[in-house]
Design a protein around this nucleic acid. Structure first.
Lengths: 345, 345
DNA sequence: AGCCCCTTTGATTGCGCTATCACCACGTAT
DNA sequence: ATACGTGGTGATAGCGCAATCAAAGGGGCT
């Protein structure tokens, strides 16, 4: 059988073209290409051959409309330049790999209006499920998610009221526990260095938890320093220099993330400051960048990849088994003292 | 006017629901929601009000099928854990922001089979255009891209034959120029440290260019060291230690990326090695991480954000103006000598 | 032979939307 | 008066596919 080329070479191919080329009905072609229903081996071969030589690519738009099923999972995150989120995405991708589901990413830049727009856009493709970073959304966004009629998983954070399911860690508790560890190690004059992003709710919660932990020991933050934008490592250096110049008697610096913490550590080593004797340091995240530093920064693992995996599993699982949802998974970040907190043992 | 709730509360809303709630035809609702055609202000208000209170979200699947237009741009990259690609994505996002086009990302893990699968999946959504990292694809993948009938932009690399348009830098030339700079600075016993990924064609081309540059001065690589996986910073340390132990007389180390270069730099500073006097170092990429290091590593900017922007602009531009395509944009990375190459001046 | 059952294939319908054209009610020009 | 726009609206058809049911072609059984 000769495969005749389509009439108009620039007209996109359809099932009909494959059907004509292989001499069977469109329905049978559809069945072959989706591996669904019984088709004899001989026709299957013929159809696949025709599809291959034509270079046919199915039109999922039409397929999705007809079947009311879409293999997409919307993933909404605040940023890509954070190093944290790519790892979450990676966990999601990995878990979804074998399910036939496809993640689609959207970035909000920590901006609620952008988030609303991205959610609207994504929901308009009628995805199988949504994974959204954080629990804080505009009312309109919450309403959209609630009405979407598909599983919603909010990730990263568990301190708040989820729309549906939630997978994350308690950033409040993370801050609290780090404060306790620092106090226990004997540090008393403690400074905080972080970002100036009012919409990074997780950083805010860590700070709140941290202050609560200090309060347990009757302490308050001795000084704080904030930044925004730029190379985090460099900012860590600069902020550390600034805060130590202003408050030379600090004996501990808590950084809101590992990158600025690493910058601070490099600064202290440069200056020959005795770490952790005279000055202790800690960050947050457990990025593996830290493994390469001259000294291991104290930190707390945020379970990023695991969060992605579990969230994806909920979507994937729920899309098969018609579960009702509302799962709540709180992971426990483990504190790693590294070499920048005095060991009290 | 009271907006009656939909009959079945779990049935997804359609244009018909909004049309009934607002007392106009579906067509008029469609026009209002897309801001197309003339609609009187009073009806527009009524329709928007109804849509808002119902919480209607349009179904783009149906819309795309009917209009044969899809506002998606497929973006295919090899990895997210590389720090380089998130920046490219960021450039793409930014450029696409105002065009109504939406990027959709797919990750191949430097695997040609995965790439083929991801391309097939993406093309089946009939995107407005595709941005694909690299020029090396399987025959099937090339064929798919060629037949897609939409603008294709291959990015990062210009050393090869593009399917359609291409935006990137010459990695061969980047390697070559770095080699020349190193030779000119007087280094002679030069080692290379890189990844063991046979499918990272850009790293390979840089190495080829680099060796060609050495050859101009009658030199060859004195030693090489490869790694795969793990924390790049730590690997940089370990590899540097290994290669220097094996070949203590090396006077320069060229790293295939900045992260391992940074690890190497930290190692050398730890060991008190005279950089750049006794030993010169250079990386590749110009990641802003380097700004925070104790000494600035020599490197070469890969124009990542710019590449993303230009690629997106081609898609956006071509989707309006029915241009024919085939653009070729070669950006020029600038060498930054930093503090780890001797200044010959 | 007549029956049933199973496998394989095809015809029809509709998913939710937009393109297109038709239509109506007004003006305004001729 | 007739013709002709023009802003506003609705009716109809169809995008490319999959769900569904109908039908055709074999066996194997009584």
């Amino acid at each position: 059988m000769t495969t005749k080329p389509p009439a108009d070479p620039r007209r996109p191919l359809t099932l009909r073209d494959v059907s004509e080329a292989s001499g069977v009905s469109e329905m049978t072609v559809s069945r072959v290409l989706r591996n669904r229903g019984d088709v004899s081996d001989s026709t299957r071969e013929r159809v696949l051959e025709a599809a291959r030589t034509l270079g046919y690519v199915p039109n999922k738009i039409a397929g999705a409309l007809a079947s009311q099923r879409v293999n997409l999972v919307g993933v909404v995150i605040p940023s890509l330049s954070n190093l944290v989120f790519p790892e979450v995405l990676s966990g999601i991708s990995q878990e979804l790999e074998e399910t036939g589901l496809q993640p689609v990413f959207g970035v909000t830049d920590y901006n609620q209006d952008r988030e609303e727009a991205v959610l609207y856009e994504m929901l308009s493709w009628r995805p199988t499920g949504m994974i959204v970073a954080g629990l804080e959304h505009s009312d309109a966004a919450r309403a959209m998610l609630q009405n979407a009629g598909v599983p919603i998983v909010e990730i990263m954070d568990v301190d708040g009221e989820p729309v549906d399911s939630v997978v994350g860690i308690s950033h409040k508790r993370a801050g609290l526990e780090m404060a306790r560890a620092i106090v226990k190690a004997g540090y008393r004059k403690i400074g905080f260095l972080g970002t100036k992003m009012p919409h990074d709710h997780r950083a805010r919660k860590r700070l709140e938890g941290f202050e609560a932990g200090l309060a347990e020991a009757g302490l308050t933050l001795a000084d704080t320093e904030f930044y925004s934008g730029g190379s985090a490592l460099l900012k860590g250096r600069e902020m550390t220099e600034a805060i130590l110049k202003r408050s030379p008697d600090l004996d501990f610096l808590y950084y809101s993330n590992d990158m600025i913490g690493a910058g601070g550590l490099l600064y202290c080593l440069d200056k020959g400051i005795d770490v952790p004797g005279k000055l202790g340091l800690a960050g947050f995240n457990g990025v593996d960048l830290l493994d390469g530093l001259p000294r291991r920064l104290a930190t707390m693992d945020a379970c990023r990849r695991e969060i992605g995996r579990r969230a994806a599993a909920i979507i994937a699982g729920r899309s098969e088994s018609g579960l009702v949802g509302g799962e709540r998974i709180e992971l426990s970040p483990t504190i790693q003292l590294g070499d920048t907190i005095r060991r009290t043992s």
